Amino acid sequence: MPKVTIYTRQFCGFCSAAIGLLQSKDADLEEIDATFEPEKRQEMMTRSRRQTFPQIFIGDTHVGGCDDLFALERNGELDRLLAAS
């Protein structure tokens, strides 16, 4: 299972929802809290080309934010991405 990296900020409901879904899948999760770390926010924006939280990567693949993650779950693609080695 590839590592999942999620950039978050505190008190973000979308971040919490995305983490909950990933935890339910037993994903190998690395959370990067960028609330008080502008360099981590800049890293997220450079990697994702987006400014909103959360931003989620499965391995090196940018899957987007919370809505994108749940869309992958609805169409059955999330399990496939998480199972890739």
Rank of each mutant, 00 (worst) to 15 (best):
E37T: 14
T52V: 11
I19M: 03
L78H: 05
Q10T: 15
T8Q: 10
G65T: 06
I32A: 00
R47H: 04
T52C: 02
D28P: 13
L82R: 01
M45T: 06
E31N: 03
V4N: 03
R50G: 05
C66P: 09
Q23P: 10
I19Y: 01
R80K: 10
D28E: 14
F14T: 13
D60E: 15
M45P: 00
I58M: 06
E30I: 07
Q51V: 12
T61R: 08
D67S: 13
Y7H: 10
R80A: 10
D28M: 05
D68W: 09
S24H: 13
I6L: 13
T46N: 01
F70M: 04
E31P: 02
C12H: 13
R9H: 11
S24R: 14
R49E: 15
L22A: 04
D68Y: 10
E43T: 11
Y7T: 03
D67E: 13
E77W: 04
F14K: 14
A34H: 03
D28V: 07
K25Y: 15
Y7D: 05
C15L: 12
I56K: 05
L22T: 06
C12F: 12
R9Y: 09
Q10V: 14
T61S: 08
T61N: 08
G20F: 00
E31I: 15
S16R: 15
G20A: 09
F53R: 03
S24F: 05
T52W: 05
T61A: 08
S85V: 01
F36W: 11
L81D: 02
D79F: 01
E31T: 14
R41N: 12
G20T: 03
F57S: 07
F70Y: 13
Q23A: 07
I56Y: 08
R9N: 13
H62S: 07
A34T: 00
D33S: 12
D67M: 02
L78I: 10
V4Y: 07
D33A: 09
P54S: 05
F36C: 02
K3P: 01
D60N: 14
E73F: 11
A83T: 03
N75W: 09
A18S: 14
C12L: 12
F36Y: 14
H62W: 00
R41M: 15
G64K: 03
E43G: 11
T8M: 03
G59Q: 12
E43N: 10
R50P: 00
G59D: 06
L82V: 10
N75S: 14
D67V: 05
Q42T: 15
D26T: 12
I56P: 05
K3G: 01
L81N: 08
A71E: 15
G65E: 07
D33Q: 09
